[in-house]
Simulated assay, not measured.
Amino acid sequence: MRPSLRLVSASLLTLGLAAGLASTVLAAETVEPASAAAGEDEVVAKVNGQPIKLSDIALADEEMGQALARLPEELRFQYLLGMLIDRRIVAQAAKDKKMQDDPMVKRREAYYDEKALRDVYWVQLMRDKVGEKAVKAYYDEHIAKAEPEVEAHAAHILVGTKAEAQKVLSEIKGGKTFEDVAKATSKDSSSQEGGDLGWFKKGDMVPEFANAVFSMKPGQVSEPVQTKFGWHVIKLIETRKSKRPTLDEAHDDIMRTLAREQGTKTIEALRKKSKIEIVGGGDGLKPQMAPAPQ
């Protein structure tokens, strides 16, 4: 049976070859124990006798994962395997042509050697800084003690102009139901659900829309509200206080938050300890170094 990409990632992490990204730190903390314990770097193909292993697939997924994110897992695995087979075939042909000492090959080897060192070392740094104790402390401080947010359940009708919004409002005041007008008039994808947007928090919506919703009373229909999307007529259905997530429910989001925070602090500290000189490019302009990534 072909292994899943989740198992592939588990094998990669077990071998200590994970990339230096916050999402990988999270994956390292959540790999299923049985997968990690197995530690088998299974051979999935051979090209002229040379093996392609699960760890190769996982590294390829790390490299190409975002571009292939919408593919089903099975197709993604097949694509990555095919890419690695083709790469191995071309690389073997290059070796037959004695290209190992070509300056362009040496330059790329140096580049990817440095990247590999950064990736593995970075994950080790983040694992030391972002552990379960830190996650629990963050939860206790920022979630367990926080006041629950107010959530709103609302519906809206989206049109292109203020005049259209006024007409919509007149139809509702004249006795038509909000849902029927939404189905007939709204340009939003929610129109077939009567404009229903479900539950959301204030920060989930653009400010103009959110400010209107959270100043209304349940059952109230708004005057026309303009946002970058067009003109809205909004109906507030009901409000509630949000349910506080458990530690388990919040765990992954907290892990990502801590990894981002610690990653920024770490790279800033390393930059301060280093002597960095921005010399300039061939066009005579002096490039600027970007801020530490968030």
Rank of each mutant, 00 (worst) to 15 (best):
G16H: 03
A34P: 00
I172T: 08
H156Y: 02
E149D: 11
D252R: 15
V225Q: 01
S242F: 02
V168F: 05
D119A: 14
F178T: 06
R260S: 08
E40H: 13
A210Y: 00
Y139V: 10
V221I: 14
D86S: 12
V47Q: 04
S191P: 00
L84I: 12
R127D: 00
E238G: 04
L59N: 04
A37T: 04
I172C: 10
E73C: 10
P245F: 05
K136D: 01
S274P: 03
E277H: 08
E193T: 14
I157F: 05
I267P: 01
E171V: 09
M83I: 10
S9D: 07
G284W: 07
D113C: 11
E223A: 13
E141C: 11
T14K: 07
T24M: 13
M216S: 04
L258M: 10
G281W: 02
L270Q: 08
L125C: 12
K273S: 08
E40L: 15
L158Y: 03
L169Q: 11
D253N: 12
L26T: 05
I254P: 02
I234V: 15
V31A: 07
K187C: 04
M216L: 08
M205T: 05
A58K: 06
D56K: 06
K98W: 00
K187F: 09
I234M: 07
R107V: 09
